[in-house]
C-alpha cells in the first residue's frame, strides 16, 4: 500500500521544486504573453512589397513551427543548441524559460487573434468614421472588448504553461517533477513522490484558475451586456 510516512523529511525537497516551478511558470507566463501579442501584431502586419509581407510571413512560419513540433523536443533543442550553435552558455533554467516562452507565445498569438477577430467589424468602422486612426481605434475600442474574449482562453494557456514546465525536468531543472524523481531514487518509493508532486501541481493550477475567473468577473462587471 501507499506509504507517505517516510516522506516527511523530503518535504523541503518538494518545496524547493515547487519554488522553481512557480518561478519558471511566472517568468514564462509574463514573457509568453508579451511575445504572444508581438507575434500577433507581426502576423497582422500589412507592411510589405506588393503581396509579399515578410513580417507577417515570419510570424506565420514561427507559429506553425512552434505548434507543429513537440515542446519536449524544443526544450532539448534550445538547451543543446544554445551551446552548440550559438556558443552562448545558457543555464538549464534559462533554456526552459526560452523554449516554453517561444512555444506558448505561438498559442497566445492565436488566442489574441481569435479574441480580436471576435469583436464586431462595425466597431472598427464606427471608430474610424469618427476620425480615429487604426491604432487609436485598436487601443480605445477594439482591445478593451477583445480582452474579455481573450481572458478565458489565455487562463487555460497559463495552466498549460504550469503543466508544461514539468518537461524542464529532462534537462535537469530542479522543479517539482525532478524533485519527485530524486525522492523516488532516495526512498525507493515508486508512486508516493509522484502523487505528492501531482497534488502540488493541482494546488497551483486550481489557484490560478480561481484567480483568472476572478479577473474575468472584474472585467465583466464593468459592462453589463
Amino acid at each position: 500500500m501507499l506509504d507517505f510516512s517516510s516522506l516527511d523529511r523530503y518535504i523541503p525537497k518538494f518545496l524547493e521544486g515547487l519554488k522553481v516551478t512557480i518561478g519558471l511558470s511566472i517568468a514564462t507566463v509574463i514573457l509568453a504573453t508579451v511575445l504572444g501579442f508581438i507575434i500577433y501584431f507581426m502576423k497582422a502586419s500589412k507592411s510589405g512589397i506588393g503581396k509579399f509581407r515578410p513580417i507577417s510571413a515570419f510570424a506565420v512560419v514561427f507559429i506553425e513551427l512552434m505548434r507543429g513540433t513537440p515542446l519536449l523536443l524544443q526544450i532539448l533543442l534550445v538547451f543543446s543548441g544554445g551551446k552548440m550553435l550559438l556558443g552562448i552558455d545558457i543555464s538549464a533554467f534559462q533554456s526552459a524559460v526560452i523554449a516554453i516562452t517561444l512555444n506558448a507565445s505561438a498559442f497566445i498569438a492565436e488566442i489574441v487573434r481569435a479574441g480580436i477577430e471576435a469583436v464586431d467589424k462595425g466597431q472598427m468602422e464606427a471608430a474610424r468614421s469618427l476620425g480615429m486612426s487604426r491604432s487609436l481605434a485598436m487601443r480605445l475600442v477594439i482591445m478593451p472588448q477583445a480582452i474579455k474574449n481573450i481572458l478565458p482562453a489565455i487562463g487555460n494557456e497559463f495552466v498549460n504553461i504550469i503543466k508544461a514546465s514539468s518537461m524542464a525536468s529532462v534537462i535537469g531543472v530542479g522543479e517539482l517533477t525532478l524533485a519527485a524523481k530524486i525522492v523516488q531514487g532516495a526512498t525507493y518509493l515508486a508512486l508516493e513522490p509522484l502523487i505528492i508532486s501531482a497534488v502540488f501541481y493541482l494546488i497551483l493550477t486550481f489557484s490560478l484558475g480561481r484567480l483568472m475567473s476572478w479577473i474575468e468577473r472584474r472585467f465583466k462587471s464593468s459592462d453589463i451586456r
Partner: peptide, 20 residues
C-alpha cells in the same frame, strides 16, 4: 483620411455603439 472623416459624421444601420 482621419482628418477628413472628422468632418463627416456617419450613422450605421447596426448603431455600432461602443458597448464597453
Amino acid at each position: 483620411i482621419n482628418k477628413i472623416r472628422q468632418r463627416m459624421g456617419m450613422v450605421f444601420q447596426q448603431f455600432n455603439l461602443f458597448p464597453h
